[in-house]
Design a protein around this nucleic acid. Structure first.
Lengths: 205, 205
DNA sequence: ACGACACCTGTCCGTTCGGACAGGGTCCGG
DNA sequence: CCGGACCCTGTCCGAACGGACAGGTGTCGT
Protein backbone atom coordinates (compact mmCIF):
# COMPACT_ATOMS: atom_id res chain seq x y z
CA UNK A 1 0.00 0.00 0.00
CA UNK A 2 1.19 3.50 -0.82
CA UNK A 3 0.90 5.80 2.19
CA UNK A 4 -0.46 9.16 1.03
CA UNK A 5 -1.28 12.45 2.78
CA UNK A 6 -3.45 15.19 1.28
CA UNK A 7 -3.32 18.89 2.12
CA UNK A 8 -5.79 21.31 0.57
CA UNK A 9 -7.53 24.26 2.15
CA UNK A 10 -10.87 23.11 0.77
CA UNK A 11 -12.12 20.08 2.72
CA UNK A 12 -14.43 19.03 -0.06
CA UNK A 13 -11.57 18.94 -2.52
CA UNK A 14 -9.68 16.81 -0.06
CA UNK A 15 -12.68 14.50 0.16
CA UNK A 16 -12.74 14.15 -3.59
CA UNK A 17 -9.06 13.37 -3.85
CA UNK A 18 -9.23 10.91 -0.99
CA UNK A 19 -12.22 9.12 -2.50
CA UNK A 20 -10.51 8.81 -5.86
CA UNK A 21 -7.23 7.57 -4.43
CA UNK A 22 -8.93 5.04 -2.16
CA UNK A 23 -10.86 3.69 -5.12
CA UNK A 24 -7.59 2.65 -6.74
CA UNK A 25 -7.20 0.00 -4.05
CA UNK A 26 -3.48 0.36 -3.56
CA UNK A 27 -3.42 3.68 -1.77
CA UNK A 28 -3.89 4.33 1.91
CA UNK A 29 -4.66 7.81 3.21
CA UNK A 30 -2.67 8.41 6.36
CA UNK A 31 -3.47 12.06 7.00
CA UNK A 32 -5.18 15.17 5.66
CA UNK A 33 -4.72 18.83 6.43
CA UNK A 34 -5.84 22.29 5.37
CA UNK A 35 -2.82 24.55 5.79
CA UNK A 36 0.89 24.85 5.04
CA UNK A 37 1.62 24.30 8.71
CA UNK A 38 -0.47 21.15 8.68
CA UNK A 39 1.60 19.88 5.78
CA UNK A 40 4.87 20.29 7.64
CA UNK A 41 3.53 18.82 10.89
CA UNK A 42 1.91 15.77 9.39
CA UNK A 43 4.88 15.10 7.14
CA UNK A 44 7.10 15.06 10.22
CA UNK A 45 4.72 12.85 12.17
CA UNK A 46 3.54 10.38 9.55
CA UNK A 47 6.33 10.42 6.99
CA UNK A 48 3.97 9.51 4.17
CA UNK A 49 5.34 8.11 0.91
CA UNK A 50 3.58 10.83 -1.06
CA UNK A 51 2.17 14.22 -0.09
CA UNK A 52 -0.41 15.78 -2.35
CA UNK A 53 -0.13 19.50 -1.75
CA UNK A 54 -2.31 22.32 -2.98
CA UNK A 55 -0.46 25.56 -3.68
CA UNK A 56 -3.36 27.89 -2.99
CA UNK A 57 -3.44 27.58 0.77
CA UNK A 58 -5.32 29.97 2.99
CA UNK A 59 -2.49 30.74 5.37
CA UNK A 60 0.13 31.67 2.86
CA UNK A 61 2.57 30.43 0.28
CA UNK A 62 2.14 26.75 -0.27
CA UNK A 63 5.25 27.10 -2.36
CA UNK A 64 7.30 27.87 0.72
CA UNK A 65 5.92 24.77 2.40
CA UNK A 66 7.62 22.50 -0.14
CA UNK A 67 11.08 23.06 1.24
CA UNK A 68 9.86 22.85 4.84
CA UNK A 69 8.15 19.53 4.16
CA UNK A 70 11.26 18.14 2.49
CA UNK A 71 13.28 19.08 5.55
CA UNK A 72 10.77 17.54 7.94
CA UNK A 73 10.50 14.35 5.92
CA UNK A 74 13.10 13.97 3.17
CA UNK A 75 11.81 10.62 1.95
CA UNK A 76 8.33 12.01 1.29
CA UNK A 77 7.72 12.74 -2.36
CA UNK A 78 5.64 15.77 -3.11
CA UNK A 79 2.99 16.06 -5.77
CA UNK A 80 1.77 19.61 -6.29
CA UNK A 81 -1.93 19.80 -6.98
CA UNK A 82 -2.84 23.24 -8.23
CA UNK A 83 -5.42 25.03 -10.31
CA UNK A 84 -2.82 27.22 -11.96
CA UNK A 85 0.39 26.48 -13.82
CA UNK A 86 2.31 29.62 -14.71
CA UNK A 87 5.90 29.12 -15.89
CA UNK A 88 7.45 30.87 -12.96
CA UNK A 89 5.37 29.02 -10.43
CA UNK A 90 5.95 25.60 -11.97
CA UNK A 91 9.68 26.20 -12.22
CA UNK A 92 9.86 27.45 -8.64
CA UNK A 93 7.92 24.46 -7.33
CA UNK A 94 10.39 22.02 -8.88
CA UNK A 95 13.37 24.07 -7.72
CA UNK A 96 12.05 23.84 -4.18
CA UNK A 97 11.80 20.09 -4.38
CA UNK A 98 8.44 19.08 -5.85
CA UNK A 99 8.44 15.69 -7.57
CA UNK A 100 5.44 16.22 -9.80
CA UNK A 101 2.81 18.82 -10.59
CA UNK A 102 -0.78 18.03 -11.47
CA UNK A 103 -3.45 20.46 -12.54
CA UNK A 104 -6.79 20.35 -10.76
CA UNK A 105 -8.41 20.14 -14.14
CA UNK A 106 -6.97 16.69 -14.84
CA UNK A 107 -8.86 13.47 -14.36
CA UNK A 108 -8.60 11.44 -11.18
CA UNK A 109 -7.17 8.50 -13.11
CA UNK A 110 -4.20 10.60 -14.06
CA UNK A 111 -3.70 11.73 -10.50
CA UNK A 112 -3.63 8.12 -9.34
CA UNK A 113 -1.13 7.27 -12.07
CA UNK A 114 1.14 10.11 -10.99
CA UNK A 115 0.99 9.08 -7.33
CA UNK A 116 1.84 5.51 -8.28
CA UNK A 117 4.78 6.66 -10.42
CA UNK A 118 6.39 8.96 -7.86
CA UNK A 119 5.82 6.46 -5.04
CA UNK A 120 7.80 3.95 -7.10
CA UNK A 121 10.62 6.46 -7.28
CA UNK A 122 9.92 7.39 -10.86
CA UNK A 123 8.81 10.69 -12.28
CA UNK A 124 5.64 11.37 -14.18
CA UNK A 125 4.91 14.89 -15.26
CA UNK A 126 1.83 15.79 -17.29
CA UNK A 127 2.66 17.14 -20.76
CA UNK A 128 1.20 20.61 -20.14
CA UNK A 129 3.38 21.00 -17.06
CA UNK A 130 6.42 19.68 -18.90
CA UNK A 131 5.83 22.28 -21.57
CA UNK A 132 5.74 25.08 -19.01
CA UNK A 133 8.90 23.76 -17.45
CA UNK A 134 10.66 23.63 -20.78
CA UNK A 135 9.59 27.16 -21.55
CA UNK A 136 10.87 28.41 -18.21
CA UNK A 137 14.22 26.72 -18.69
CA UNK A 138 14.67 27.71 -22.29
CA UNK A 139 14.47 31.43 -21.61
CA UNK A 140 18.04 32.34 -20.67
CA UNK A 141 17.36 35.68 -19.14
CA UNK A 142 14.81 37.40 -21.21
CA UNK A 143 11.93 37.05 -18.87
CA UNK A 144 13.71 36.00 -15.72
CA UNK A 145 13.72 38.86 -13.29
CA UNK A 146 16.58 39.86 -11.05
CA UNK A 147 16.14 40.19 -7.31
CA UNK A 148 15.90 43.94 -7.49
CA UNK A 149 13.39 43.81 -10.28
CA UNK A 150 11.17 41.44 -8.36
CA UNK A 151 11.40 43.76 -5.40
CA UNK A 152 10.29 46.72 -7.47
CA UNK A 153 7.60 44.70 -9.17
CA UNK A 154 6.15 43.89 -5.78
CA UNK A 155 5.96 47.59 -4.98
CA UNK A 156 4.38 48.33 -8.35
CA UNK A 157 1.73 45.81 -7.43
CA UNK A 158 0.88 48.06 -4.50
CA UNK A 159 0.30 50.87 -6.96
CA UNK A 160 3.24 52.93 -5.80
CA UNK A 161 4.50 55.65 -8.13
CA UNK A 162 8.11 55.66 -9.28
CA UNK A 163 9.00 58.36 -6.81
CA UNK A 164 7.44 56.48 -3.90
CA UNK A 165 9.24 53.30 -4.88
CA UNK A 166 12.50 55.22 -4.98
CA UNK A 167 11.94 56.65 -1.53
CA UNK A 168 11.09 53.22 -0.19
CA UNK A 169 14.27 51.71 -1.59
CA UNK A 170 16.55 54.69 -1.08
CA UNK A 171 17.25 55.19 -4.76
CA UNK A 172 16.45 57.89 -7.30
CA UNK A 173 13.19 58.06 -9.17
CA UNK A 174 15.23 57.83 -12.33
CA UNK A 175 16.69 54.51 -11.31
CA UNK A 176 13.26 53.17 -10.61
CA UNK A 177 12.25 54.16 -14.12
CA UNK A 178 15.23 52.24 -15.41
CA UNK A 179 14.25 49.09 -13.56
CA UNK A 180 10.63 49.44 -14.57
CA UNK A 181 11.76 49.66 -18.18
CA UNK A 182 13.74 46.45 -17.73
CA UNK A 183 10.78 44.72 -16.16
CA UNK A 184 8.46 45.75 -18.97
CA UNK A 185 10.91 44.47 -21.54
CA UNK A 186 11.45 41.15 -19.84
CA UNK A 187 7.78 40.49 -19.24
CA UNK A 188 6.69 41.82 -22.60
CA UNK A 189 4.30 44.24 -20.93
CA UNK A 190 3.21 47.55 -22.41
CA UNK A 191 2.89 49.31 -19.07
CA UNK A 192 3.22 48.79 -15.34
CA UNK A 193 -0.38 47.73 -14.88
CA UNK A 194 0.03 44.91 -17.36
CA UNK A 195 3.33 43.95 -15.78
CA UNK A 196 1.55 43.53 -12.47
CA UNK A 197 -1.16 41.48 -14.12
CA UNK A 198 1.42 39.20 -15.74
CA UNK A 199 3.28 38.90 -12.48
CA UNK A 200 0.13 37.82 -10.68
CA UNK A 201 -0.70 35.37 -13.42
CA UNK A 202 2.72 33.79 -13.21
CA UNK A 203 2.71 33.73 -9.47
CA UNK A 204 5.73 36.00 -9.13
CA UNK A 205 4.15 38.26 -6.57
CA UNK B 1 -34.93 12.43 -3.80
CA UNK B 2 -33.48 15.84 -4.53
CA UNK B 3 -32.22 16.07 -8.09
CA UNK B 4 -28.89 17.91 -8.11
CA UNK B 5 -26.42 18.94 -10.83
CA UNK B 6 -22.81 19.96 -10.19
CA UNK B 7 -20.67 22.22 -12.37
CA UNK B 8 -17.03 22.86 -11.53
CA UNK B 9 -14.06 23.13 -13.84
CA UNK B 10 -12.05 20.75 -11.66
CA UNK B 11 -13.33 17.20 -12.13
CA UNK B 12 -11.85 16.07 -8.85
CA UNK B 13 -13.73 18.76 -6.98
CA UNK B 14 -16.88 17.60 -8.71
CA UNK B 15 -16.11 14.05 -7.61
CA UNK B 16 -15.73 15.16 -4.03
CA UNK B 17 -18.97 17.09 -4.02
CA UNK B 18 -20.83 14.25 -5.68
CA UNK B 19 -19.48 11.72 -3.21
CA UNK B 20 -20.50 13.84 -0.25
CA UNK B 21 -23.97 14.56 -1.56
CA UNK B 22 -24.63 10.93 -2.45
CA UNK B 23 -23.61 9.90 1.04
CA UNK B 24 -26.51 11.88 2.46
CA UNK B 25 -28.89 9.33 0.93
CA UNK B 26 -31.54 11.77 -0.18
CA UNK B 27 -29.73 13.38 -3.06
CA UNK B 28 -29.50 12.13 -6.60
CA UNK B 29 -26.87 13.51 -9.01
CA UNK B 30 -28.47 13.99 -12.40
CA UNK B 31 -25.63 15.71 -14.25
CA UNK B 32 -22.16 17.19 -13.95
CA UNK B 33 -20.27 19.67 -16.10
CA UNK B 34 -17.07 21.66 -16.26
CA UNK B 35 -17.99 24.96 -17.94
CA UNK B 36 -20.49 27.79 -17.86
CA UNK B 37 -21.94 26.53 -21.13
CA UNK B 38 -22.35 23.09 -19.63
CA UNK B 39 -24.30 24.62 -16.78
CA UNK B 40 -26.79 26.30 -19.10
CA UNK B 41 -27.20 23.26 -21.34
CA UNK B 42 -27.67 20.73 -18.58
CA UNK B 43 -30.03 23.01 -16.70
CA UNK B 44 -32.20 23.27 -19.80
CA UNK B 45 -32.08 19.52 -20.43
CA UNK B 46 -32.36 18.07 -16.94
CA UNK B 47 -34.10 20.84 -14.99
CA UNK B 48 -32.47 19.79 -11.72
CA UNK B 49 -33.92 20.93 -8.43
CA UNK B 50 -30.58 22.37 -7.39
CA UNK B 51 -27.50 23.40 -9.36
CA UNK B 52 -24.21 23.65 -7.52
CA UNK B 53 -22.14 26.10 -9.49
CA UNK B 54 -18.51 27.07 -9.13
CA UNK B 55 -17.76 30.69 -9.98
CA UNK B 56 -14.18 30.16 -11.09
CA UNK B 57 -14.88 28.52 -14.40
CA UNK B 58 -12.24 28.16 -17.06
CA UNK B 59 -14.27 29.41 -19.99
CA UNK B 60 -15.71 32.63 -18.69
CA UNK B 61 -17.55 34.34 -15.89
CA UNK B 62 -19.49 31.83 -13.88
CA UNK B 63 -21.32 34.84 -12.54
CA UNK B 64 -22.82 35.52 -15.95
CA UNK B 65 -23.98 31.93 -16.14
CA UNK B 66 -26.34 32.43 -13.19
CA UNK B 67 -28.79 34.51 -15.15
CA UNK B 68 -28.52 32.25 -18.19
CA UNK B 69 -29.27 29.17 -16.08
CA UNK B 70 -32.25 30.85 -14.46
CA UNK B 71 -33.62 31.63 -17.92
CA UNK B 72 -33.04 28.09 -19.17
CA UNK B 73 -34.60 26.54 -16.08
CA UNK B 74 -36.41 28.97 -13.78
CA UNK B 75 -37.38 26.34 -11.21
CA UNK B 76 -33.77 25.31 -10.65
CA UNK B 77 -32.31 26.76 -7.48
CA UNK B 78 -28.70 27.78 -7.66
CA UNK B 79 -26.11 27.27 -4.96
CA UNK B 80 -22.86 29.07 -5.64
CA UNK B 81 -19.83 27.11 -4.55
CA UNK B 82 -16.78 29.32 -4.60
CA UNK B 83 -13.37 29.66 -3.01
CA UNK B 84 -13.72 33.42 -2.68
CA UNK B 85 -16.34 35.66 -1.13
CA UNK B 86 -15.69 39.32 -1.81
CA UNK B 87 -18.56 41.72 -1.05
CA UNK B 88 -19.08 42.73 -4.63
CA UNK B 89 -19.01 39.19 -5.91
CA UNK B 90 -21.41 37.88 -3.27
CA UNK B 91 -23.83 40.73 -3.81
CA UNK B 92 -23.71 40.36 -7.57
CA UNK B 93 -24.32 36.62 -7.38
CA UNK B 94 -27.51 37.12 -5.40
CA UNK B 95 -28.64 39.95 -7.66
CA UNK B 96 -28.26 37.64 -10.63
CA UNK B 97 -30.44 35.03 -9.02
CA UNK B 98 -28.32 32.80 -6.79
CA UNK B 99 -30.23 31.16 -3.92
CA UNK B 100 -27.29 30.45 -1.68
CA UNK B 101 -23.53 30.81 -1.55
CA UNK B 102 -21.19 28.33 0.05
CA UNK B 103 -17.45 28.67 0.46
CA UNK B 104 -15.26 25.80 -0.64
CA UNK B 105 -13.68 25.89 2.76
CA UNK B 106 -16.88 24.77 4.53
CA UNK B 107 -17.55 21.21 5.54
CA UNK B 108 -19.49 18.83 3.37
CA UNK B 109 -22.18 18.49 6.04
CA UNK B 110 -22.96 22.14 5.71
CA UNK B 111 -23.13 21.88 1.95
CA UNK B 112 -25.64 19.06 2.24
CA UNK B 113 -27.69 21.10 4.70
CA UNK B 114 -27.75 24.05 2.32
CA UNK B 115 -28.81 21.89 -0.61
CA UNK B 116 -31.61 20.40 1.49
CA UNK B 117 -32.78 23.83 2.58
CA UNK B 118 -32.91 25.45 -0.84
CA UNK B 119 -34.48 22.35 -2.40
CA UNK B 120 -37.28 22.70 0.13
CA UNK B 121 -37.82 26.25 -1.02
CA UNK B 122 -36.14 27.76 1.99
CA UNK B 123 -33.00 29.81 2.21
CA UNK B 124 -29.88 28.96 4.13
CA UNK B 125 -26.94 31.26 3.91
CA UNK B 126 -23.75 30.68 5.87
CA UNK B 127 -23.01 33.42 8.40
CA UNK B 128 -19.79 34.59 6.73
CA UNK B 129 -21.62 35.08 3.47
CA UNK B 130 -24.49 36.84 5.20
CA UNK B 131 -21.99 39.23 6.74
CA UNK B 132 -20.52 40.06 3.34
CA UNK B 133 -23.99 40.58 1.98
CA UNK B 134 -24.91 42.92 4.81
CA UNK B 135 -21.74 44.89 4.28
CA UNK B 136 -22.43 45.23 0.58
CA UNK B 137 -26.00 46.39 1.15
CA UNK B 138 -25.06 48.85 3.84
CA UNK B 139 -22.82 50.83 1.56
CA UNK B 140 -25.24 53.14 -0.25
CA UNK B 141 -23.42 53.68 -3.52
CA UNK B 142 -20.02 54.74 -2.55
CA UNK B 143 -18.16 51.74 -3.63
CA UNK B 144 -20.71 49.95 -5.71
CA UNK B 145 -19.91 49.99 -9.38
CA UNK B 146 -22.37 50.36 -12.20
CA UNK B 147 -22.57 47.90 -15.05
CA UNK B 148 -20.61 50.17 -17.34
CA UNK B 149 -17.96 50.79 -14.76
CA UNK B 150 -17.49 47.09 -14.19
CA UNK B 151 -17.16 46.64 -17.93
CA UNK B 152 -14.47 49.28 -18.15
CA UNK B 153 -12.73 47.97 -15.08
CA UNK B 154 -12.47 44.59 -16.75
CA UNK B 155 -10.76 46.19 -19.73
CA UNK B 156 -8.43 48.14 -17.46
CA UNK B 157 -7.45 44.80 -15.97
CA UNK B 158 -6.22 43.85 -19.42
CA UNK B 159 -3.98 46.90 -19.33
CA UNK B 160 -5.80 48.69 -22.12
CA UNK B 161 -5.21 52.42 -22.44
CA UNK B 162 -8.15 54.81 -22.31
CA UNK B 163 -8.14 55.20 -26.06
CA UNK B 164 -8.18 51.44 -26.63
CA UNK B 165 -11.03 51.01 -24.17
CA UNK B 166 -12.96 53.69 -25.99
CA UNK B 167 -12.47 52.00 -29.33
CA UNK B 168 -13.53 48.68 -27.88
CA UNK B 169 -16.74 50.14 -26.47
CA UNK B 170 -17.46 52.60 -29.24
CA UNK B 171 -17.18 55.67 -27.03
CA UNK B 172 -14.77 58.60 -26.80
CA UNK B 173 -11.51 58.46 -24.94
CA UNK B 174 -12.83 61.34 -22.89
CA UNK B 175 -15.81 59.33 -21.73
CA UNK B 176 -13.53 56.51 -20.69
CA UNK B 177 -11.56 58.98 -18.60
CA UNK B 178 -14.79 60.04 -16.96
CA UNK B 179 -15.69 56.49 -16.04
CA UNK B 180 -12.19 55.73 -14.84
CA UNK B 181 -12.41 58.77 -12.59
CA UNK B 182 -15.68 57.46 -11.16
CA UNK B 183 -14.18 54.03 -10.61
CA UNK B 184 -11.15 55.45 -8.80
CA UNK B 185 -13.40 57.50 -6.56
CA UNK B 186 -15.70 54.62 -5.69
CA UNK B 187 -12.91 52.17 -5.01
CA UNK B 188 -10.75 54.71 -3.23
CA UNK B 189 -7.88 53.96 -5.59
CA UNK B 190 -5.13 56.39 -6.51
CA UNK B 191 -4.68 55.10 -10.03
CA UNK B 192 -5.88 52.48 -12.48
CA UNK B 193 -3.33 49.90 -11.41
CA UNK B 194 -4.50 50.03 -7.82
CA UNK B 195 -8.11 49.94 -8.97
CA UNK B 196 -7.38 46.70 -10.78
CA UNK B 197 -5.66 45.31 -7.70
CA UNK B 198 -8.65 46.17 -5.51
CA UNK B 199 -11.01 44.73 -8.08
CA UNK B 200 -9.12 41.46 -8.12
CA UNK B 201 -9.03 41.35 -4.34
CA UNK B 202 -12.79 41.87 -4.14
CA UNK B 203 -13.50 39.44 -6.90
CA UNK B 204 -15.12 42.01 -9.18
CA UNK B 205 -13.18 40.94 -12.23
C1' DA C 1 42.76 41.47 -16.52
C1' DC C 2 38.83 41.58 -19.00
C1' DG C 3 34.05 40.89 -19.98
C1' DA C 4 29.29 39.89 -18.17
C1' DC C 5 26.02 41.24 -15.25
C1' DA C 6 23.48 43.74 -11.96
C1' DC C 7 22.85 48.12 -10.23
C1' DC C 8 22.72 53.13 -10.27
C1' DT C 9 22.16 58.04 -12.44
C1' DG C 10 21.44 61.75 -15.80
C1' DT C 11 18.85 64.63 -19.78
C1' DC C 12 15.35 65.05 -23.28
C1' DC C 13 10.83 64.27 -25.12
C1' DG C 14 6.38 62.64 -26.59
C1' DT C 15 2.34 60.28 -24.62
C1' DT C 16 -0.79 59.07 -21.18
C1' DC C 17 -3.13 59.92 -16.77
C1' DG C 18 -6.06 62.01 -13.60
C1' DG C 19 -8.28 66.10 -11.84
C1' DA C 20 -11.03 70.38 -12.37
C1' DC C 21 -13.70 72.88 -14.73
C1' DA C 22 -18.63 72.53 -17.54
C1' DG C 23 -22.03 70.83 -19.98
C1' DG C 24 -25.28 67.42 -22.94
C1' DG C 25 -28.76 63.30 -22.94
C1' DT C 26 -32.06 59.15 -21.23
C1' DC C 27 -34.94 56.69 -18.10
C1' DC C 28 -37.17 55.60 -13.87
C1' DG C 29 -39.64 56.23 -9.44
C1' DG C 30 -41.78 59.24 -6.08
C1' DC D 1 -43.23 66.17 -13.52
C1' DC D 2 -39.21 66.51 -11.47
C1' DG D 3 -35.20 64.84 -8.92
C1' DG D 4 -31.80 61.37 -9.25
C1' DA D 5 -29.33 57.63 -11.20
C1' DC D 6 -26.50 56.57 -15.31
C1' DC D 7 -24.28 57.61 -19.52
C1' DC D 8 -21.86 60.60 -22.79
C1' DT D 9 -18.68 64.68 -24.36
C1' DG D 10 -15.71 68.79 -24.29
C1' DT D 11 -11.29 71.87 -22.89
C1' DC D 12 -7.36 72.77 -20.01
C1' DC D 13 -3.38 71.48 -17.36
C1' DG D 14 0.01 69.57 -14.18
C1' DA D 15 1.97 65.29 -13.12
C1' DA D 16 3.38 60.80 -14.14
C1' DC D 17 4.91 57.48 -17.40
C1' DG D 18 7.92 55.13 -20.89
C1' DG D 19 11.43 55.31 -24.43
C1' DA D 20 15.95 56.81 -26.37
C1' DC D 21 20.01 58.58 -25.72
C1' DA D 22 24.51 58.19 -22.64
C1' DG D 23 27.00 57.25 -19.05
C1' DG D 24 28.94 55.63 -14.03
C1' DT D 25 29.99 51.84 -10.19
C1' DG D 26 30.84 47.16 -8.17
C1' DT D 27 31.18 42.02 -8.28
C1' DC D 28 31.98 37.77 -10.14
C1' DG D 29 33.97 34.01 -13.00
C1' DT D 30 36.99 32.86 -16.75
Amino acid sequence: MIRVAVVDDHPIVTDGVVANLRASGEIEIVATGTSADDAVVLAGAQHPDVLILDLELAGKNGIDAIRAVKEASPQTRIVIFSAYAGEERVATAFERGADSYVLKGTSSDELVAVVRAVAAGGTMIPPEIGAQLARAVRQPRRDRLTEREREILALLAEALANRAVGERLGITERTVKFHVGEILGRLGAANRAQAVAIAKARGIV
